[in-house]
Design a binder for these strands. Structure first.
Lengths: 206, 206
DNA sequence: CACATTTATTGACATACATCACAAATTTTT
DNA sequence: AAAAATTTGTGATGTATGTCAATAAATGTG
């Protein structure tokens, strides 16, 4: 019994070294092409980051897209010496500075590891090559681009139509993991409010 | 000479009845597949709207995507009896309520014609069929989804990092056609400010 | 062209949220 | 475990922008 479990694990790891990534994709693309599974195993690479390390710096071209196996990251811009959070990401998210990656131009955002991280990544060139060669890859890319665009739409809606308290409540309802896992000062800047305002909103709730 | 021009126009119109649409797509996809050109001519249909008419109502599923041949439209939501503009669109834009269209679920946005309009449209089902059949269509869809996502990113950046005056200036610099062609009350709600505030900002400039 | 309706402007006042300053609590480092 | 550093909480005060109200300008309509 023990042997069987052990054997299974070895087999599993060797055959699908990027199982988290493949399983995640399968949530959105059932009947995933075997060829794509192979390409993923072959072309995605692992990168580790330690807490506080930057994945992307302002002014640089985002050459890769990453899938988070483990860890949390924060994306932010500096504007008038103020740090404004654009997004957080969690395990199972794909991340990149979108416009910088897609257009291969310098971006104004920074991405930093909030904890130690393990990421799988693939380059823009390689991904475009796969997209050009294979309809299935092109579809995969499209599906995740749609997912990203819908997230943006949701965030725009939140920022444009809600006041500070409504935004905080919305976050608690729809993205509780952000409130649970991210320091308040970053949550505040993500909501476009100050730490003090967030602190007062939280005080009112108790 | 007159005859030749006339003849050319007839030929042109008959052969490419959706020339504006095809030309627009070619700006982003050079060497457009002839098959796609044919599909466009065959599967896109024309729809006319008169000023004040709604293209999409809140609560309804966006079943089509439209390309604007002529006219202006405004997309908005009603929240606490207040009308908040999400976007405007102009000739050569593709429009739909994105998440409602992609997920085929009811949306909370409304789209209304600000002027008489002529639109080309195609249904979700037909477009998905084309995307499934043809790699070239899938790529086309992906390219325009990327374009949309980048627009959203820009707007998010504007809303999150700028104050009222900066937003207005940004609009004047990057999207002057909005300021030139759209009534101020809608521009204000698009910027997330009141008409009064916009009016004061404009007064300061002169 | 005159009248009606909609849109833009301007002033007085209200308010949500920011800023500054400092204390308390929590987390990290040694 | 103590010390240092970081994050959070709270009060006093400031300010950008909202709200309400009334007028002016622009646009639409018979």
């Amino acid at each position: 019994m023990v042997f069987r479990i052990y054997f299974y694990q070895i087999f599993y790891l060797e055959y699908h070294p990027m199982q988290e990534l493949i399983s995640h994709i399968e949530k959105f693309i059932p009947n995933l092409d075997d060829r794509i599974r192979q390409d993923i195993t072959q072309f995605f690479k692992l990168r580790k980051l330690t807490k506080g390390e930057h994945l992307v710096h302002e002014g640089q071209i985002s050459k890769n897209v990453y899938f988070i196996k483990k860890g949390l990251l924060r994306n932010y811009i500096i504007k008038n010496d103020k740090d404004e959070t654009i997004w957080f990401c969690f395990p199972e998210d794909f991340i990149t500075v979108f416009s910088s990656f897609q257009l291969q131009i310098p971006g104004r955002e920074n991405t930093i590891a909030l904890t130690d991280c393990e990421l799988y990544w693939i380059s823009f060139e390689k991904l475009e090559e796969l997209n050009a060669q294979s309809h299935a890859w092109e579809r995969l890319s499209r599906v995740f681009t749609i997912k990203f665009a819908i997230q943006q739409e949701t965030r725009l809606f939140m920022l444009q139509t809600m006041n500070a308290e409504e935004k905080y409540d919305y976050l608690g309802e729809h993205f509780p993991h952000i409130i649970q896992q991210i320091p308040n000062k970053y949550v505040a800047s993500y909501l476009g409010i100050t730490r003090e305002t967030l602190s007062r909103i939280r005080a009112r709730k108790t």
